[in-house]
Design a protein around this nucleic acid. Structure first.
Lengths: 344, 344
DNA sequence: AAATTTTTCGGAAACGTTTCCGACGAACAC
DNA sequence: GTGTTCGTCGGAAACGTTTCCGAAAAATTT
């Protein structure tokens, strides 16, 4: 069964192919009358334009790619749907692609641009290292979303949307301190990782220092490399080890809610209660955090707003706006039952 | 900065374009020597084949699309990564697309085939209604994965991979009965929905009937239409309503683990304990189920195996195997602490 | 050494669109 | 009535590949 092409429609309507093309793309230079006639027969014959031919013929496509660092991460996966809606609303074609290594994410983006003639890229997750990534070689507009930029690294002026991980991390630890906690453990990201978790760890240290509390290296834990990052399984394994070490602490800050859920389990397994024996703070504000027992105190990232703003900025860059907006959104501290007030 | 094409490489190497094409695609009819020479300069000049041109020139592509009914569903999103790995391993290009309405999923597939010249389709989630879906019009091999086929609807002979939702649903309810429960509530899918949840509800009824227990319609709840399906929020709302009605029950079967987590919250909020006051059973076997308090008794769907088998079957169909395999995998009952034994 | 087969390669058509350019007629200005 | 502009349209080139076909070169057989 041969596919019906633009030529077939042209032949049937007794017009030129360019006229059909104009009709379909709502181009100008065509009378309303013939346009309708063409559109009608196109519909009648179930004509569907071939994307490949379109991309090839046109000097540019209408496709935006979302490159995500880790597909399975629940925090990001909830954002896919939002991105899809937003991009479709603005008339873009949509492409979801995932990369294993955050170091390769830019290189992969450049490859995809050549391969698919992208109009823009959204990078989701991971971190920026301007020295190692060929940012200047990205030939199309792009925006980083929820991508951490370490303050120790050279600052990139790429457009981005996210929160201030250091500040928000510091905020929730200060909240713990305010509630009377002095020995606060942390489950941070994988060691050496420069993603958002690193920023939150930095905030943790800042909070302790500002309060004049000592930084006890034994209370600083990192997620395990051999397990998937930011999962409950990882949080469980790390927290279990921490408890078994027998080091005393009254509060635990997990740099992601999912990790915290794993930590909960380890705490329960050791016959401790939350928050009476150990207070727990999370980060991210995933929906689930409200339902677990006890509901977790955490920093909510405004994911919906992040998505909307990311797409807006990308769209503007595509339209030619010459501004590298770096949008830092505010997180929201959700005070729930997982933290005890132990000030006497 | 002009893109470098196959012609450029040909000119540089002083060969014909077809020779370059052969080198790049590992085609036969070329000497090992020239192939290496071409591959080298291609690499040197960062040559990347243009997918659109490729798809257009070739009579067929190498692209497989995964059409998913609901992107944000955590159960499916965990499968994306697996699909990607599997498909890449077999040398396929990969395309993830989501559809809002399961009724449209086949129509959308047909459209995509024309548009992108797909080689195959994987349908993920939702349900099959052979009368309403133009299954015979799908011009390429396809496989349904985790797609429910209601036994009341005409049977499709399309290739598929999944579990027997009726049987597994029945199994876990029988387990509850064995533990002494007689008044068992259920939170099933949205009313009228014919997806997997409907099968599990059917299993629930079968189990009760087989045990000679009455079916109390008041104990049969459906997820709310205005909330996203299979989420904790939905489970919470429904379970809260159920409890407020004041109807007596000792056990609750939620057709998804996430829903169960929401139900947990509603139960805790009403000052009841799990499982001492109410036992809860889930379904799916997501990782999280092991970490929540108490760990949930559930039926684990072998997601990894499902993915592997789905890709295998699709791949075989593409290779020309003329068999419509309908693979029904076994679930695994995970006995955990959320169910109390109340046999005296 | 000639004839045949096999290997290696180049040219060109084809894929289905977009876009540029030119043509034609009608409407308008002078 | 002639020249100019404008709206409408068709033809054809271009996009970057794959693939078919035939030719040249090399290897093999006779």
């Amino acid at each position: 069964m041969k596919n019906i092409t633009i030529k077939d429609i042209a032949r049937i309507c007794k017009v030129g192919v360019s006229t059909v093309s104009r009709a379909i793309n709502n181009d100008s230079g065509i009378s309303e009358e013939t346009r309708e006639r063409i559109l009608e027969t196109a519909k009648k014959y179930h004509y569907v334009p071939n994307t490949s031919a379109r991309n090839l013929g046109a000097t540019e496509t209408n496709t935006v790619a979302v490159l995500v660092y880790s597909v399975t991460n629940i925090f990001f996966s909830a954002m896919y749907g939002m991105f899809q809606t937003q991009l479709e609303d603005r008339g873009y074609d949509y492409l979801l692609h995932s990369v294993k290594d955050t170091q390769d994410i830019v290189a992969e983006g450049i490859r995809l641009v050549k391969e698919k003639r992208l109009k823009g890229i959204i990078f989701l997750g991971g971190w920026i290292d301007p020295d190692k990534m060929r940012l200047d070689d990205i030939p199309v507009p792009y925006v980083f979303c929820t991508v951490y930029q370490d303050i120790d690294l050279p600052k990139s002026d790429s457009p981005s949307v996210g929160i201030d991980d250091v500040k928000e991390g510091r905020r929730i630890v200060e909240y713990l301190i305010k509630k009377g906690h002095e020995r606060i453990a942390i489950i941070a990201g994988v060691e050496g990782d420069r993603a958002t978790g690193a920023g939150r760890l930095k905030g943790y240290k800042q909070a302790l220092e500002a309060a004049g509390l000592p930084i006890d290296e034994r209370l600083i834990c990192h997620m395990k490399k051999n397990l998937e990052e930011f999962t409950a399984a990882n949080g469980y394994a790390v927290c279990k080890e921490l408890i078994e070490k027998g080091i005393d602490f009254t509060a635990l800050f997990c740099v992601s809610d999912l990790t915290a859920i794993g930590a909960y389990r380890a705490i329960y397994d050791s016959d401790r209660r939350i928050p009476e024996d150990i207070s727990v703070a999370g980060f991210d504000g995933i929906e689930l955090g409200e339902y677990i027992e006890p509901p977790i105190t955490t920093i909510r990232q405004p994911r919906d707003k992040m998505v909307v703003e990311t797409v807006r900025i990308l769209s503007e860059k595509i339209e030619g706006v010459d501004k590298n907006e770096q949008l830092v959104l505010k997180g929201k501290l959700l005070e729930r039952a997982s933290i005890a007030d132990i000030t006497k």
